[in-house]
Amino acid sequence: MDILKAQLELMPEWKDMLQQRYQILYTIALSKGIGRRTLAETLQLSEREVRKEFDLLRAQGLILVSREGAEVTPPGQQLLVELKSLVDEWSGRHEKETTLKRLLGIEEVHIVAGNSDDSEQAQLLLADEAAKWIFANLKPRMITAVTGGTTIAKIADHLPQSSKIEQLQFVAARGGIGKDVQLQANTIAALFAEKLNGSYKTLYIPDRLSESAYEAMTQEPFVQEMMALYEQMSILVHGIGDATEMARRRSSSSEELKLLKEQQAVSEAFGYYFNARGEVVHRIRTIGVQLEQLEQTPHIVAVAGGAQKAHALDSYFQQAPKQTVLITDEGAADQLIKVHTLQEEF
């Protein structure tokens, strides 16, 4: 029995205490300048508990507290890095990652704490984990394509301001969906480029087109240039949507919504709608990354969380490329494992 196991045998409550303290420190690191009250609300702790932890972490030199709130010091940041594997193992997330990797048949799975459906903290953790993976895997002259959406937009906030990786290029993986410009692929590609001192290419055309408009657009030089870039992309970062929700965001007609219901569409990605078996049951005419281009892309990063997304994730991963990296949260992961367990039983 090693010394750590011996300590836990004697003081089993120490594990819960360490995980809570780690979560507090991590939340401060994600939300620079956070105050005690906001931190207490975010982690659903009492202000008294948070005040006690603040005092302890400050005394250890792990955080600095000012009028603007708390920030993690460099020693605190280093401690977070060193403790991550241990905390993930104790929480059971490491075991769940291994299980999901096997069940989905993909390259990597990363699971963060919480459930994005009802936790802003989980959404921050999801974006931060994705940003860390992307930054760690970027190499000079790489082309990275990004889709739009709330989850992908948050990733840009967590990327470090860096110029150490040369000649990076970021491209919008699709045209615009909805009216919120901040959540569109064009804006997100530009934000990634700004953070990492790269260049970017945008695709300022509607996400969906009529047949005649589609045929005309494919002949345009700038569209052909974008399609050539998709063929060369090394990393593709995308979300996975619920089929009905995505159709409504696109202001789909009542006929199209009826069709998706009849075809039992469950998930959506890249303008393709999939049923529970991962079969394409509908697609829209869109200029952007096409499904067949995924097979030749070295790294595909799918970022999605929340228990309510589990069926959409299960649908999409029926056919997802093996080189996919899934970054999700415990809410979605627990539900996905439950779904697969039930499928195996039957």
Score class of each variant (00 low, 15 high):
Asp2Trp: 07
Lys5Trp: 09
Ala6Pro: 00
Lys15Leu: 14
Tyr22Asn: 04
Tyr22Ala: 08
Tyr22Asp: 02
Ile24Asn: 01
Tyr26Ile: 00
Thr27Cys: 12
Thr27Leu: 01
Thr27Gly: 13
Ala29Asn: 13
Ile34Thr: 05
Gly35Lys: 12
Arg37Val: 13
Leu39Asn: 02
Glu41Cys: 07
Glu41His: 09
Leu43Glu: 07
Ser46Leu: 13
Arg48Pro: 01
Val50Met: 02
Arg51Trp: 00
Phe54Glu: 11
Arg58Asp: 06
Ala59Leu: 08
Leu62His: 08
Leu64Arg: 11
Val65Cys: 07
Ala70Trp: 00
Thr73Gln: 01
Leu80Ala: 10
Val81His: 06
Val81Ile: 13
Ser91Gln: 12
Lys96Pro: 00
Val109Tyr: 07
Val109Cys: 06
Asn115Met: 09
Asp117Gln: 05
Ser119Phe: 07
Glu120Tyr: 05
Gln121Tyr: 11
Gln123Pro: 02
Leu125Cys: 10
Asp128Cys: 12
Glu129Cys: 11
Ala131Asp: 05
Trp133Cys: 03
Lys139Pro: 01
Ile143Pro: 10
Val146Thr: 12
Thr150Cys: 07
Lys154Gln: 15
His158Gln: 15
Pro160Gly: 14
Ser162Phe: 08
Ser162Leu: 13
Ala172Glu: 05
Arg174Asp: 13
Ala189Tyr: 03
Ala189Val: 09
Leu191Val: 00
Phe192Ser: 02
Phe192Ala: 14
Ala193Leu: 05
Glu194Phe: 04
Ser199Tyr: 01
Lys201Ile: 14
Pro206Asp: 02
Asp207Ser: 09
Glu215Gln: 13
Ala216Pro: 02
Thr218Ile: 13
Thr218Met: 15
Gln219Asn: 13
Phe222Tyr: 10
Val223Ile: 13
Gln224Phe: 02
Glu225Val: 04
Met227Arg: 10
Ala228Arg: 09
Leu229Tyr: 08
Tyr230Arg: 06
Glu231Pro: 06
Val237Asn: 05
Gly239Phe: 08
Ala243Ile: 01
Glu245Leu: 14
Arg250Val: 01
Ser252Trp: 11
Glu255Tyr: 07
Glu256Cys: 11
Lys258Cys: 03
Lys258Gly: 10
Lys261Thr: 07
Ala265Phe: 08
Tyr272Pro: 02
Phe274Cys: 00
Phe274Asn: 00
Gly278Ser: 06
Arg283Lys: 14
Arg285Met: 15
Ala304Asn: 09
Ala307Glu: 13
Lys309Tyr: 11
Lys309Val: 07
Ala310Ile: 09
His311Glu: 15
His311Tyr: 03
Asp314Tyr: 03
Asp314Ser: 11
Tyr316Ile: 01
Ala320Glu: 03
Thr324Ile: 13
Val325Leu: 14
Leu326Tyr: 04
Glu330Cys: 12
Thr341Gln: 12
Glu345His: 08
